[in-house]
């Protein structure tokens, strides 16, 4: 156990596992801060994983794949946003519908593009990029500074989200629209526009999180590869009390347990305990996190409350 925690490969794995979660959690957080629960997240991650991979498979550069994934996510976000913001439909039902639609679309398109493949074709994924000097540091260097560029981007993205949310007028408006949309409308800012924009950007980030799986973590697209990560991210937003910094900590904690369970399986403990129990840990942990945090968390006041101009 101690040897595991002291190895550089463990911490490198933690950052790697946390990266897609950080992207998608930031996406979900932006949506929820603006007052929209986006349960389309799981399907949007599947679309991101598929579209990003497909774009690179068809010849785009890796960053091009990331951009295509973002655009696809934003497009689905626009659909979700139109249904739940101006039309005010049930965010639960629309979100689940979007997840089913997006997942089915990705699978349909994959089967259409590659009808008879038994082994999924591979692409050349992002390679680790060692940060000069820093990566030479003992232990920490190889753990933190020998990651793929998309991992650094995940952390940068979290920083950017925190900065925009707390240090810019746009962020102030975004937070206000999730708390008191009428007050934002009174300032002459369009609630509908802000929420639609937030859902589009948020969904784009979710899709980038999905694309991390195919462009950085693995090199192929598999069915079921997202495997509940989207739902975990919804839990992480609650765990992080709707704050980017705490949500990143939550993602790291979650990734830590995930990396640990894989390694514990190879120890004497793993020989006795069934491996399924280890695989359950992340999900159980998410539920526990929800239980612990939901009592103290400050939920955005207008979360899941549709806004109609002139109504009270």
């Amino acid at each position: 156990m101690i040897e595991i925690l002291l190895s550089a490969s463990f911490w490198a794995a933690v950052l790697r596992i946390a990266s897609p979660l950080i992207f998608a959690t930031m996406g979900a957080l932006i949506c929820e801060r603006a007052g929209v629960l986006n349960l389309g997240i799981e399907g949007i991650m599947v679309i991101g994983a598929f579209v990003g991979w497909m774009a690179v498979y068809l010849g785009l550069p890796l960053w091009g794949g990331v951009a295509v994934a973002f655009a696809a996510g934003a497009a689905i976000g626009l659909l979700h946003g139109i249904l739940v913001v101006p039309f005010g439909l049930s965010q639960h039902v629309v979100g689940l519908g979007i997840t089913l639609l997006a997942t089915a679309t990705a699978y349909f398109a994959y089967r259409l593009a590659l009808p008879q493949v038994t082994t999924p074709p591979k692409i050349e994924p992002f390679q680790p990029w060692e940060v000069p000097l820093l990566s030479d540091l003992p232990l920490v260097g190889q753990a933190l500074f020998a990651q793929t560029p998309l991992t650094y981007a995940a952390f940068a993205c979290a920083g950017l989200v925190a900065f925009v949310l707390y240090r810019t007028p746009l962020g102030l408006a975004l937070r206000a629209v999730g708390e008191n949309p009428a007050a934002v409308e009174a300032q002459g800012v369009s609630v509908t526009g802000l929420r639609l924009g937030a859902v589009m950007v948020g969904s784009g980030l979710m899709a980038v999180g999905g694309s991390f799986l195919t462009l950085s973590a693995f090199s192929s697209f598999f069915f079921e590869m997202v495997n509940g990560r989207g739902w975990v991210c919804i839990a992480l937003v609650v765990f992080g009390a709707w704050r980017p910094g705490k949500a990143v900590l939550g993602a790291l904690l979650f990734a830590g347990f995930d990396a640990l369970q894989i390694r514990l399986q190879q120890t004497p403990v793993g020989a006795v305990v069934p491996y399924q129990l280890f695989l359950m840990l992340p999900y159980v942990l998410s539920i526990l996190a929800l239980v612990v945090m939901s009592r103290r968390a400050q939920v955005p006041a207008a979360l899941m409350v549709p806004y109609a101009k002139g109504e009270r």
Partner: peptide
């Protein structure tokens, strides 16, 4: 405890 049931019931599927 006021824990949102959407996520907990979803996660139970995986467990």
């Amino acid at each position: 405890l006021g824990v949102d049931e959407v996520v907990t019931t979803l996660l139970f599927n995986f467990i």
